[in-house]
Design a protein around this nucleic acid. Sequence first.
DNA 1: GTCTATAGAGAGATAGAC
DNA 2: GTCTATCTCTCTATAGAC
Lengths: 196, 196
Amino acid sequence: MARTIGSHSDITGPRVREAALTLFARHGYAAVSMRQIAAEVGVQAGALYNYTPDKQSLLADLLAAHMDELLVAHTAETPKNSAPTDALEHFTRFHIRFNAARADAVFISYMELRNLSAENFGRIEALRRVYEGRLEAILRAGVASGAFDIPDPKITALALIAMLTGVNTWFREAGRLSLAEIEEIYWGMVRKTVAV
Amino acid sequence: MARTIGSHSDITGPRVREAALTLFARHGYAAVSMRQIAAEVGVQAGALYNYTPDKQSLLADLLAAHMDELLVAHTAETPKNSAPTDALEHFTRFHIRFNAARADAVFISYMELRNLSAENFGRIEALRRVYEGRLEAILRAGVASGAFDIPDPKITALALIAMLTGVNTWFREAGRLSLAEIEEIYWGMVRKTVAV
DNA sequence: GTCTATAGAGAGATAGAC
DNA sequence: GTCTATCTCTCTATAGAC
């Protein structure tokens, strides 16, 4: 990769995070060296330290940014005051669509938590619990209104999220099913799971 | 850890695999050194090479052994000629119970596939597909008999396995729910998911 | 079968020139 | 802001003594 002398902080910064995300997802955090990331970006390893204090912070920032984006997008796209069934359908479709568009970030969000410091781990986990809490709230509202029959809303929330996130392990753009078809199938399963 | 001079191949071998399993699950394959494994066992790093040709084979053997155990146990414990609903209930309970008892092995089976050579990866994946195929066959039999209503048995098989395996991410022996209660809740969800 | 010692490669991070 | 050079450490794997 060609490079020029001079100032590139506005370009190089995002490229570093992008390269780290891709490489961490493909080979794992511990297996990727700073030199590999630098090579992908087209700089020398030392230059990376203009953008991150160390390797661990690079990972933590990627995970935190992903969780932030998830919560912000979910808030922005969620209609207010929906009936529980509508809210659950929206959550289902949002989750599949959002995660399918960010396969690498979702992957490292599950795989690389153990490589975070205790403090960073706590921060990321708290954000994840907020997201899980939103689904749980939808389920509880549906139970309260009589729309859903669920013995344990917390467990059901975790079970549904695991089921939906599982799409990422096999979904391929060129596969047998389109994302729209997958949304339909999964919404059908979610709907029946909570049905009275 | 104390150690003695002499021959211990029958003891040390299993201890090496045990230590590797625990450490790989806790810190990740790439982050664990042969020295750490040796220290856990109570030998020097060089001695490990009496039990594995290299680090990669150690991982591959752990994953292959886990998948073999899974298929053997599932075959042994599965009643013959069950009605689809009974077979599905058995699969659900078996999966939860088997995986809860082997959290470390399940974890690395999902997390460390990318650290396998292409050949080892193909071998492990084939075993996994056999297991998924058994659930899919149950679902298809239920559709054929009219017991289940499922738009896409392959996708439903993957979705249910993801849901069931998700238990491992939060289940703790000392937690709010016993494994028996969890089995009940999940069987309730599975039953409704496939219901006519 | 395990030890000690080490070869050889590669890691993360820093210093100083430009 | 990036480079080159390097410090210091750790890694996998092997050799040879016991």
